[in-house]
Design a protein around this nucleic acid. Structure first.
Lengths: 86, 86, 86, 86
DNA sequence: GATGCGCTTTAAATGC
DNA sequence: GCATTTAAAGCGCATC
């Protein structure tokens, strides 16, 4: 398909594709590892007498709290901007 | 509830719970970040003319390859075990 | 609630609901029966000296083969579509 | 491994195994098809304004009813047997 | 008591 | 951007 001198567009595209695939797969493995870590924390918490279901609920509520706080700040920014104080 | 000398079991439990929550939340944030990174790679690939849908499919197939290889090894172990060679 | 002439919308809805329920329940029973049949085949295989665990693994690997083949065909379709040949 | 005259035990075992595999796979496909059918009924019900979640609940309750009835009959049988009337 | 399996629920991805 | 449809995670059960 090619000698040492010429590299076809197809080959370049293939290399690019492989590069993208490897980056994605590496990231997905990291993601899986973190998911494993999370599971382990839940297991450890359970071993200490905490019900995973309840912990999940608490995590969810705290996330909502954070989201709400961010929304509140965003609104404040809008106000400040609107009255020319930003 | 307590002075400087005594720490109730409830307080200890609360501290433990908070510790677990923080560990989980930190890991979940890492996970979210990685998901973001993955999205960005897909976007970059798309910008280079690769259809994200196709890339996803390729990733899936490669994962299936890996999974099948692992299953095949697992079954070999089962066989060896079954005939008393493990 | 109704005489021979009028049938309320509620009654029609109720009839429909019962019809759906019966169809679902019939199908679920068939499904249960098939699950039973599968168990029996495993039992029979075990009676002939085949380790059910290994058979399950083989079944799984063959399913993965089939799935991968289908995925591969699907990606070919995607390619053809992507380059305007479908 | 064998000529037209002799068939090794290994070959017989292999044939048996394949036979079991095919029976299992056929049954599993039927099971999958039925699962599909069930999904379709739920979809159809949803299209007629019935909430699938609620239908699931009703199905579950009716199953429990049936199970309960069977239990009740079983207990009755035990009673009848105990007092020599079966 | 541990492992696998099916169901449910939640998150992501595609199409409109 | 939303809403539908599809994939993933978690949960409970049943089995060994």
């Amino acid at each position: 398909m090619s000698d040492t001198e010429t590299v076809s567009a197809t080959e370049i595209a293939a290399d690019q594709l492989i590069s993208f695939l490897e980056r994605i797969e590496k990231l997905e493995e990291e993601k899986r590892n973190i998911s494993e870590d999370i599971k382990e924390v839940y297991a450890e918490a359970k071993g200490n007498g905490f019900d995973p279901k309840i912990i999940r609920q608490v995590v969810r509520i705290r996330q909502m709290d954070r989201a709400e706080r961010q929304e509140t700040e965003a609104i404040l920014d809008l106000y400040l901007e609107a009255i020319g104080l930003s």
